[in-house]
Amino acid sequence: MIERNERKAYWRHTKVQMLTSLLPFLLAMIILPIYADALNEKRVLGMPLGYFLACHGLMVIGFITVAVFINRQDAIDHWHGAHEDF
């Protein structure tokens, strides 16, 4: 169980983790589609690059974001002793 004086440090760590997880994804989901037409000159797997990045790229980035978040947040929980005991 987490010590009382450890809570502040734990929450600061958690907030940094939240921001580092969401901000890159947020930027990607705004910027990638805007430049899709310009990127469509090149092709990946036969698909125009802009379409590929907006369709496949963002799904992959989303999944990686969540997977990394789960892993890192669990490490933060254990570091501060905030994890669940089963």
Binding site: L22, F25, M29, A36, A54, L58, M59, G62, F69
Partner: peptide
């Protein structure tokens, strides 16, 4: 075509936001 991808992106991003911001 491509324009409907705004909904796909929103759906995927919504689940990402839910995982990080709210669900735990």
């Amino acid at each position: 075509g491509f324009d409907a991808l705004c909904l796909s992106i929103g759906w995927c991003a919504g689940l990402v936001f839910m995982a990080v911001l709210f669900a735990p």
